[in-house]
């Protein structure tokens, strides 16, 4: 119930924000989403997956979008680009077809915030860099949480979660993070 309320609240908030943004300036909203899309892309550059995270050497890095992602259409610009030797592919995550997960990155939409904790308990989500944009995302098992900071974005990192998921996060990224938790 609380989660539902909270979700509703968030949804409403996002809606309000979105509405506000779209109302004030359509171009500002565009930059905002585009920037966020770039952030997602850039995270892939500073995270290393173990080879076991991929089926083959040529397997792409899959960025799965779970829930409602308003800027998903901006991610098209990075879809198919290469991160090192691997291609970055954007796809929508389907919970019903969990056996076929294979995601290396997952952006969890605001509307799926309530499912996060249970979501991470699933072993199928090992080696997945989870990225969210809610306040408790990293406390709920998420690894990176993106936040708005004036005219740009900042992010927090839960290093412990990252390590549990077998991921190595570049120190450069850690330096840029606003807050890094799970260091002890």
């Amino acid at each position: 119930m609380v989660a539902g309320t909270y979700r509703m609240f968030i949804t409403s908030l996002f809606f309000c924000i979105g509405l506000t943004v779209s109302t004030i300036s359509m171009s500002a909203a565009k930059d905002y989403f585009q920037l966020k899309a770039i952030f997602l892309y850039n995270f892939a550059n500073f995270v290393e997956w173990p080879s076991t995270a991929f089926k083959t050497k040529e397997s792409p890095i899959e960025l799965c979008l779970y829930g409602k992602v308003p800027f998903s259409k901006f991610l098209n610009s990075i879809d198919g680009t290469f991160i090192g030797d691997r291609q970055l592919i954007i796809k929508q995550y389907d919970i019903n077809d969990s056996s076929k997960s294979g995601c290396q990155m997952m952006f969890v939409g605001e509307n799926k915030k309530s499912e996060i904790e249970a979501f991470w308990s699933n072993k199928r989500h090992l080696y997945v860099l989870s990225i969210g944009e809610t306040d408790d995302f990293i406390n709920s098992g998420g690894i990176i949480n993106i936040m708005r900071n004036q005219d740009t974005f900042t992010f927090d990192i839960n290093l412990e979660s990252a390590m549990k998921n077998g991921l190595f996060i570049s120190s450069d990224l850690l330096i840029l993070a606003r807050k890094v938790t799970g260091l002890n």
Binding site: I38, N42, N45, T152, F153, D172, L173, I175, L176
Partner: peptide
């Protein structure tokens, strides 16, 4: 590099 990509001028 990371600073550029993440537009972190301060860093």
């Amino acid at each position: 590099a990371a600073s550029i990509l993440f537009l972190d001028i301060k860093t």
